[in-house]
């Protein structure tokens, strides 16, 4: 066999150009095939990730009104960035974003962690799954629909929230706590600059707490029963078991969930957009978040160049916030201290 093989090789080398070409195309094919297999990813990545990113960098140094067509693009250097950074609305929107991120972010976790702990340690499998699924519903419901419902709940004159407060102020025991209600009616949840942000934050908390409960339940389920037993033998009551054993054990889950909250909350858009009826961020721009501002600049004012610049500023902002979080909590959060 091997003798015939080498003979054929010898012949092939002798009859040079055609065979060499064939061999070249063969090795080329061999090298191309792997690329062919990964090409779907590469094509999608180039089209939908790399190109838009580079295009937005390009855009951010041009002035462009998309309605006037591609030819209207005009190079302006860093003017978009300069202009944006001097716009008070940008700073207002960044302030609102951070405020909302903190006020709507922190309670999500402060609520979700104990609830998940109680669900996991206090309930049997079936009932726990039911409650967890129930609390997950807000997360999978359309944000726009949720915001619309809250819009009607918050309505100053006919909203159920104000009606409930009025009702409570009439009830025997509660009236003591709610006697102030009739004096301040109607409470303008969405049309006063003081109440708008808290009202938005409530919706965000309502929507995302369930998701965090699911994450933390998964976390608490990883803590073995032996550890709780050991803690009980060591003299821990239920609170101490939670504080000294369960909570440190789910640190990686807290880290993960907080990271998602930071990234998500700094991009808050739909809730404030719907609750302010798309009216330039609501009263005194109290509900104007960074993404909302980005939307206004791009699609209301049709300044695509500035919008691109803002998106890069927002990106930088989120990247810094996340890095700070990683820097301070990363080692313990990723469980590298174990």
């Amino acid at each position: 066999m091997s003798i015939t093989g080498s003979q054929i090789d010898g012949v092939a080398v002798a009859t040079a150009p055609a065979a060499r070409k064939r061999r070249l195309s063969k090795s080329l094919k061999k090298r191309l095939i792997p690329w062919l297999f990964i090409s779907p990813f590469i094509i999608l990545f180039l089209t939908f990730t790399l190109f838009p990113m580079l295009f937005s960098v390009y855009l951010s140094v041009h002035e462009w009104n998309p309605v006037a067509g591609l030819s209207s693009m005009e190079y302006v250097g860093l003017a978009n960035y300069q202009l944006t950074l001097t716009d008070p609305w940008l700073w207002q929107s960044l302030y609102n974003t951070v405020w909302l991120a903190v006020v709507s972010g922190v309670p999500q976790h402060l609520l979700a962690i104990p609830v998940a702990y109680l669900l996991v340690t206090g309930l049997r499998g079936g009932l726990r799954h039911f409650y967890t699924a129930f609390m997950f519903i807000p997360y999978i419901t359309s944000t726009v629909a949720v915001s619309l419902i809250f819009f009607s709940i918050y309505s100053a004159n006919s909203g159920i929230l104000n009606q409930m407060l009025l009702g409570l102020s009439d009830m025997p025991v509660f009236s003591w706590f709610f006697s102030w209600v009739p004096d301040v009616m109607p409470i303008r949840w969405l049309t006063s600059s003081d109440l708008l942000k808290p009202s938005i934050a409530m919706v965000v908390i309502w929507k995302y707490t369930g998701f965090n409960i699911v994450v933390y339940s998964a976390g608490f389920l990883t803590v073995s029963r032996d550890l709780y037993d050991a803690a009980r033998v060591d003299g821990c009551n239920r609170w101490q078991q939670f504080w000294h054993v369960a909570l440190p054990m789910i640190r990686p889950f807290v880290f993960f969930a907080v990271t998602l909250t930071i990234i998500g909350n700094l991009q808050l858009f739909e809730e404030p957009f719907v609750l302010t009826q798309a009216q330039s961020g609501g009263v005194a721009q109290a509900g104007l978040t960074a993404s909302y501002y980005l939307y206004l600049v791009g699609w209301q004012w049709l300044e695509m160049g500035s919008a691109a610049a803002i998106s890069w500023i927002l990106f930088l902002f989120i990247a810094i916030a996340t890095s700070v979080h990683f820097y301070f909590n990363g080692r313990k959060g990723l469980g590298e201290d174990r």
Binding site: S224, D226, L227, D229, A230, A231, V233, H244, V245, P248, M249, R251, D337, R338
Partner: peptide, 13 residues
Amino acid sequence: IAMVFQSYALYPH
């Protein structure tokens, strides 16, 4: 009482 567990049940953190 003190107990030594089969899995040791040491606190990993």
